[in-house]
């Protein structure tokens, strides 16, 4: 009995589990194949075909649900946006402030450029006009630093010897005479204003001549006009130019200087008339000027 062989039963392969594994794998393989087929068809004909039409119809059918979902989510989205905007308000405020500073600087720069442009246009008219002195050419330039106060009678221009500016060159603006170059650097030059210079002038209406010189309180006066001469209020004054060929004047003839601003007067003991002069050039707000240099350098 003990020696007799015992037959072992065959191992059973759990048929239900094996079948379910097969089904499972078959399902997933089938789905993957269907997906690959859909991708292939969709990729080969993305804008036409039955599948494209089916997808369009499906999309149309889903659209109401999507709209409904969007509407349902809208209050939550609004709430999120509100909270998000609250949290970012501080940084946004800083950013807007920075942007405002940039825009304000640009606006100021634009306004300054606009003012400068207007002066340049007037200056151009003056340069091309009939009163522009013959034998001279104009070097148009901007003003780097205007007179900084009542005690300063100079300004700096952004043109120098490299641009052709020479010492003692007259400087004009759109209105008239500004001053004279008193120091030259390669790219800049210093201009002493009319309010700190002496210019020989003439009244073209009456022919009266005199020197325009600084008066009290930063004003200008026409000096050395004898009491017998007649000068009228609002008479214009222009540069008198050269009186002697041997000693040419620094200022050519005909540059407008200003006008007689008040009726001339004189005390009994005075030798000369007291003539107040109002300069044509607005010396307090110059943006652009022109330096007059002779066309013939030997002059």
């Amino acid at each position: 009995m003990l020696a007799s062989s015992v037959q072992r039963s065959k191992p059973t392969p759990y048929p239900s589990k094996a079948r379910s594994a097969l089904i499972r794998r078959a399902v997933v393989v089938l789905l993957v194949l269907v997906a690959l087929t859909l991708i292939t068809i969709s990729f080969r004909s993305p804008t036409s075909g039955a599948l494209h039409g089916l997808q369009g119809a499906g999309s149309t059918a889903l659209r109401p649900f999507q709209i409904a979902a969007t509407r349902v989510a809208q209050p939550f989205r609004d709430g999120y946006d509100y909270l998000s905007s609250l949290s970012s308000a501080k940084s946004e405020n800083e950013r807007l402030k920075r942007e405002y500073r940039v825009v304000r600087a640009e606006a100021i720069a634009n306004a300054a450029a606009q003012a400068k442009l207007a002066q340049v246009e007037k200056l151009l008219q003056f340069v091309q006009g009939s009163t522009f002195p013959k034998g001279y050419r104009a070097i148009s330039t901007g003003v780097i630093s205007p007179p900084s106060g009542p005690f300063t009678h100079t300004l700096t221009i952004e043109a120098g010897s490299s641009h052709g500016v020479r010492l003692n060159s007259p400087v004009v603006s759109d209105g008239g005479l500004v001053g004279i170059v008193t120091n030259v650097f390669p790219n800049t030059a210093k201009v002493t204003l009319l309010t700190d210079s002496y210019v020989w002038a003439v009244d073209p209406r009456t022919g009266v001549r005199g020197g325009v010189a600084p008066g009290p309180g930063g004003t200008l006066q026409l000096t050395e006009v004898s009491k017998q001469k007649v000068v009228h209020e609002n008479d214009p004054l222009i540069t008198a130019g050269t009186r002697s060929a041997r000693y040419p004047d620094l200022y050519p003839y005909g540059i407008p200087i200003g006008r007689v601003s008040a009726p001339p007067g004189a005390t009994d003991t005075a030798m000369y008339l007291q003539v107040q002069v109002q300069p044509f050039a607005n010396l307090g707000s110059l943006e652009a000027v022109a330096v007059l240099v002779p066309k013939n350098p030997r002059r």
């Binding site: 789905l31 993957v32 997906a35 859909l38 991708i39 997808q55 999309s59």
Partner: peptide, 15 residues
């Protein structure tokens, strides 16, 4: 379908 994408692409990955 809803996003009008390549049909089957998301299906393949999600499957």
């Amino acid at each position: 379908t809803a996003s009008l994408g390549t049909l089957g692409l998301t299906s393949l990955v999600l499957t």
